[in-house]
Design a protein around this nucleic acid. Structure first.
Lengths: 292, 292
DNA sequence: CACCTTCATGCACAAACATGCAAACAAACA
DNA sequence: TGTTTGTTTGCATGTTTGTGCATGAAGGTG
């Protein structure tokens, strides 16, 4: 057997370079983020974890314990706390970020499926046979598309996934809004799409939304998307909004429309009572989904 | 300086494992999707599988096990779990993505997958970076969409399933052709779609087809579809046709265009010799897919 | 039919987890 | 200064979850 003599450090470098070559190493945290010092407050540590979550979208419990110099128990406690306040979702081995716009479309479409399905079941009860309904992009609306009852309907959508879901539903006359596809949204928004919308007068529109707040109204995280939704609001006679609990009472950078424009708000049965109370005070007709 | 003695083969193995571990495999999927690193969460793995399902429409258990560096048992457990939550359907050897559409289109898209994938792999070699490519509807073209290489491309399509397959491929500037959706075809054809096509001048078009015959040319079973394809032929500089053996030498009720208009015909390696001979005689440049 | 691959189940082991508890520490108060 | 109170932390406990291996069954192939 042939053998060579190699310096240990050289071998170490070789292996290290080799591993780094593919570039997916997640050990960049040390260099990018200032780490809390040795004698730091728990809040500092949680802040660091939040930033890391924002940056990487996920954290590992063991890695954090090592980096921050505390036991894994403390890290787990932190993660539990952060998860309880909705910052992240706890998974085996660590946590993944739960901020509304992070996470791919595919990821989002598999979160809270049960809640969304219940909302959808309630929302579709608003439909009448023969109506022209517009389904805006969004994962809740995808559930609505799946829940559409077997009645003659004319459906239009700018969401690719919704269009795909309606494929084969022969009783629906489906129109797809063309234009440039936004990968974050999974549908068409922009000039070309807007032009097509302007030729439509849907009876009812299920508006996708990122956030709903009584004072700030409806908002999204993408400017172009907000503009597109504003146009939708203008074109459609009825605007229906189906929102999961986590979106209730939150705000987004780009405003779409005040709540007053909304014809009907579909919310979960177990929405926080004080939020429900405030919504009822605002005059928007509410529709509750069935309890889980 | 400390040194050690190491067998050359052992060192080679070390470096090889290390390089493979961090992911420069020759499988085409690796170049497109960031694979979970060495320190990954179980949920990361399932996310990776979901994204792969979204892109390729199917996954193989053995391949996943090798790529992700875990046992096939774990992969099978993941697939079982994903299937239970409705993300995919478990099949012998792996899993296929659960497209919500039912019936004929769905059935078709799982026929001859291997043949179509081979055709697709050959067809995409005709592409140059920066080109404007049109992907017509059709199950072979769906495979072409999945096989599109990682290069800057502007892509337009009238197929919903192709648009869905391109979701998340950030490097592609995707335009969806709007209009009335035909449930049989799974895409938009008709007046509105034609109008949008007229504003496009794609460099290369992969035309979907039902039948190819030397005398009768290309044909389809739906009149409206044939008209749409005729328009496509007029608008695009290059027309590429990828056809499985079963379509070769058959005719359909509605003619699209004579073979002379076709820039390139991609056929299977094991196409019947006498048909190939006749095609070669007709002057259409042929491109053979790799043998199975 | 034989042969191989893939699959499901049960089991053992390790890692990650929640919980209770006591020590350490800081701030507030007598 | 000494005591109390509340918080944080690490450790020990038992539990849960994920993983790989073995076995036998079921599915595909020639």
């Amino acid at each position: 057997m042939r053998k060579i003599v190699i310096e240990i450090d050289r071998l170490r470098t070789l292996l290290h370079d080799c591993a780094n070559f593919s570039g997916q190493s997640r050990m960049h945290t040390d260099t990018r983020l200032p780490r809390p010092g040795n004698n730091s407050l728990p809040s500092d540590r949680q802040l660091y974890i939040r930033q890391l979550l924002l940056q990487d979208g996920r954290v590992l419990a063991t890695e954090l314990a090592q980096t921050l110099g505390v036991s894994e128990d403390s890290i787990r406690r932190d993660l539990r706390e952060l998860a309880a306040s909705g910052v992240c979702k706890r998974v085996y081995g660590g946590a993944i970020a739960m901020t509304p716009n992070t996470g791919s479309l595919d990821e989002r479409s598999h979160e809270n499926v049960a809640s969304k399905a219940r909302l959808a079941a309630a929302a579709v009860q608003l439909l009448q046979p023969g109506q022209f309904v517009f389904l805006d992009s969004g994962t809740t609306n995808l559930e609505i598309a799946r829940a559409l009852p077997d009645m003659p309907l004319t459906v239009a959508t700018n969401s690719i996934l919704i269009a795909a879901a309606l494929l084969g539903r022969q009783q629906f006359d489906v129109t797809v809004v063309g234009g440039r596809m936004d990968h974050r949204i999974g549908g068409t928004i922009g000039t070309a799409a807007a032009l097509e919308i302007q030729a439509m007068r849907p009876d009812i529109c299920f508006l996708g939304t990122c956030s709903v707040d009584i004072e700030l109204g409806i908002g999204t995280t993408i400017a172009e998307e907000a503009a597109f939704k504003r146009l939708l609001v203008r074109q459609c006679s009825q605007i229906v909004l189906a929102v999961t609990n986590q979106k209730l009472g939150t705000a987004s950078p780009f405003a779409v429309t005040p709540l007053a424009e909304v014809s009907r708000l579909v919310i979960e049965a177990d929405a926080e009572p004080h939020k429900v109370e405030r919504l009822q005070g605002s005059g928007v007709p509410l529709l509750f989904a069935a309890a889980s």
